Every structure is written in structure tokens, then in C-alpha cells.
Computed example of a mutant assay.
Amino acid sequence: MKSTFNRNRRKFILIPLGVAALLALISYVVMLLWNNILPNTLSVNPITFWQAMGIFVLCKILFGFGRHGGGASWGKRKMLERCKQMTPEERQQFKDEMKQKMCGWTKHNNPQNS
């Protein structure tokens, strides 16, 4: 019987290669658009492939990876869906655990907000 790693070996190899290829393609498109539009319009210098990749990655970090903005909105939506499925007792237990983890730190207890 094959192990999980042996069955999914292609995924472990193909997914990172696919992500790298997609990143390279998008970086190339960013470079082409920048070099064909902005130097004539805004009098900026043309950029290299690596600079285009850096601009693309920086934009994804600053403006988010999802279609609804950054990862925070996705996480918030996922947490809201999870809370809707909780019973009132589970919800109260979750709140108590979070208060304990945060050491009682809330907006009202924050000395900087006073």
C-alpha cells in the first residue's frame, strides 16, 4: 500500500512549479505594461523583470490576495460563519477563552485609549 506522500508526489512538485510559472507570467505582463505605457506617459524609467516581480508582490501584500480585499476579510467572514454555527454555550465558552488568551486586554482596558 502506497503512502500519502507517494500518491500525492505530483502535487508536491507541480503546485510549486505552477505557482512559480504563474508568478513569472504575471511579472512579465507587469513589466510589459509598465515599459510600454508609463515611460511615455509619466517620464519614468523602464523596469526589469525582477523589479516588476517586486512591484507585483508588494501590491499583493499591500492590497490583498483575495477578491474581497486582503486575507483579513476572508478570515473575518470565516470566523463569522463558524460563530453562526455555534450554540450559545459554545459561543460564551469561546469568548471566555479569548478573554483569557488576551489577558483581559480590550478596547476599554487599553491605557492608550484613555
Rank of each mutant, 00 (worst) to 15 (best):
R67I: 09
N113V: 03
M53S: 11
C83G: 00
E90L: 08
P39V: 03
E97M: 12
S73Y: 05
V19I: 11
M31Q: 06
F5E: 15
C103F: 07
I55Q: 09
L42C: 03
L14S: 10
L32V: 04
V30E: 05
L62Y: 15
A52R: 11
P16L: 02
I13D: 09
E97T: 14
W34K: 03
E90H: 14
K76T: 06
G66Q: 10
M102F: 12
P111F: 13
T87S: 15
R10Y: 15
K107I: 10
K76P: 00
K84T: 05
L14K: 06
G70W: 08
L17F: 15
K2E: 04
I61N: 03
F5H: 13
V30D: 01
Q51K: 11
I47E: 03
G64P: 03
P39W: 14
R67H: 13
Q85D: 10
K99I: 02
T4F: 11
T4N: 10
P111R: 11
K76R: 15
K76G: 14
E90F: 06
K99D: 00
F65M: 11
G18I: 08
P88S: 02
F94V: 00
I15C: 02
V29Q: 03
C59K: 14
G69K: 02
L33A: 12
L80Y: 15
W50A: 05
